[in-house]
Design a binder for these strands. Structure first.
Length: 435
DNA sequence: TCTGGGGTCCTTTTCCGG
DNA sequence: TCTGCCGGAAAAGGACCC
């Protein structure tokens, strides 16, 4: 089953107009919708593990006689909101408002560090349900106008404007404005849109006039608008590749374009090197993909404190079982079964390892996942303390399909894991429910 | 004061049978 | 029977993204 895609360039008489749409400061904006009194103040969103961070729960406790329904949220006095100062825990900032960013707080920063930089900042937990609701709302608003949309996560999409009525007017600006207006009416939030001949350039273009901006970029703008950008701005160049590029004196996309294709392939690998060359010349023919099937589902958790497999075995065993149950529930709710079952763990030194195994029959059963994942656990070093444990099911197919029912009847389940327990005597004490 | 959670994709290593 | 080689699949790791 092939994913449905937009028509390829060759069959299309119109110039390709690909839009990238990015919601402006999405998580923070969703919170500010509910708490408008926080506008302009330093707010850090993240953590949220502690119950007392939940503003509403705290309010109900403090003022039990008040009616704290949604209509009154904007009446909460600013003083009541919890401050970042004194935060203890392992959370990271999902995002921070501009006022907080001025103190150097940024997304993905540990909250302990953020608290040092800006102790007066208000700390809000992420309201994932609300963020997801608004995410669905802005996406459905888009597909009503332009049906060829690719979901790129909670706050981003690509849209193929090419064949949409008005999609060619002013290079896409007219349609982009319409979409911005409709999203604002539906959600109260702003977004930024870049329109370009392909996804690669559209993605970079959407950042040009944030917030609430529209940028139209054509191939003629490659040298003036794209080449001056740092390589890191290219979607697909991360911190590792960027560092390696800089060591070669390559800082901007233009520097990259100046290098020979062959040279890049020699230094960055056949595939990645060739890709780097393509992107530096603004070339990208990837279609906008409207539907895709999930490949894997997983659940993982970082512990409040590092756990030791022997000393904390009961706690660890309970978490492990819960993760398996959650993955199984996710699979069942979404209607998938998988046949590769694996674990991930992260040691106290932040090094992570994974183990997985492929079984004969597809499953979404918690007990089966628990058993196979348990066997995987026996293949890793459990003498070091753990900070994270995760469970993953891969090689997914839709439940109930012919494929999902196939099995080769060869031998017992987990045959490929047998006799692989060199270290049985201690691991078996750790997770007694394995036996 | 270290560094979340849920994914995808790619490369390298390991394993296994012929 | 032993060894080496080869190729494919599975496993492991890592980079990257939101």
């Amino acid at each position: 089953m092939l994913p449905r895609v937009s028509p390829p360039l060759s069959e299309n008489p119109l110039p390709r107009r690909i839009a990238h749409l990015d919601m402006d400061a999405f998580f923070a904006s969703v919170e500010l919708l509910r708490y408008p009194q926080l506008k302009g103040l330093p707010v850090v969103i993240g953590g949220g593990r502690r119950k007392e961070d939940d503003v509403l729960a705290g309010l109900r406790e403090a003022y039990p006689d008040q009616d704290w329904s949604a209509a009154t949220l904007d009446m909460i006095p600013v003083d009541f909101f919890p401050r970042l100062a004194g935060y203890t825990g392992r959370g990271v900032a999902t995002t921070a408002t501009y006022a907080a960013r001025q103190f150097g707080v940024g997304s993905a920063m540990g909250l302990m560090k953020a608290a040092k930089l800006c102790p007066q900042a208000i700390l809000l937990p992420v309201d994932f349900d609300e963020v997801r609701r608004i995410s669905r709302l802005f996406k459905s608003t888009i597909t009503e106008i332009a049906p060829v949309m690719e979901d790129r996560g909670i706050d981003e999409v690509y849209i193929d404007f090419t064949e949409v009525p008005g999609g060619q007017r002013e290079g896409g600006r007219v349609l982009a404005r319409l979409i911005q207006k409709c999203i604002f009416e539906a959600t109260g939030l702003t977004c930024s849109i870049g329109v370009a001949p392909n996804k690669l350039i559209a993605k970079m273009a959407s950042e040009f006039h944030k917030p609430n901006g529209i940028s139209i970029v054509t191939m003629d703008d490659l040298q003036t608008l794209i080449w001056p950008l740092p390589c890191r701005k290219v979607n697909g160049v991360g911190p590792k590749a960027d560092e390696k590029l800089q060591k070669q004196g390559i800082v901007t996309v233009g520097d990259l374009a100046a290098k020979e294709r062959g040279w890049l392939m020699q230094h960055f690998g056949k595939s990645y090197g060739a890709w780097l060359h393509e992107v530096s010349w603004g070339r990208d023919e990837r279609p906008v993909v409207t539907e895709s099937e999930p490949v894997s589902m997983s659940r993982e958790t970082t512990f409040e404190r590092d756990l030791h497999a022997v000393r904390d075995r009961a706690e660890l065993g309970a978490v492990f079982t819960r993760l398996c149950e959650q993955v199984a529930a996710d699979l069942q709710r979404k209607g998938y079964v998988g046949k590769t079952i694996g674990i991930k763990l992260r040691y106290d030194n932040f090094q992570s390892v994974t183990r997985d195994t492929t079984i004969e029959q597809f499953t979404a059963d918690a007990a089966t996942i628990r058993r196979e994942a348990g066997l995987c656990l026996k293949r890793v070093d459990l003498t070091r303390r753990l900070r994270l444990l995760g469970v993953r099911v891969g090689k997914l197919v839709k439940a109930g399909t012919d494929e999902a029912l196939t099995s080769d009847y060869s031998d017992s389940p987990s045959a490929n894991c047998k006799d692989r327990t060199p270290d049985d005597h201690h691991t078996h004490l750790l997770f007694p429910e394995l036996d």
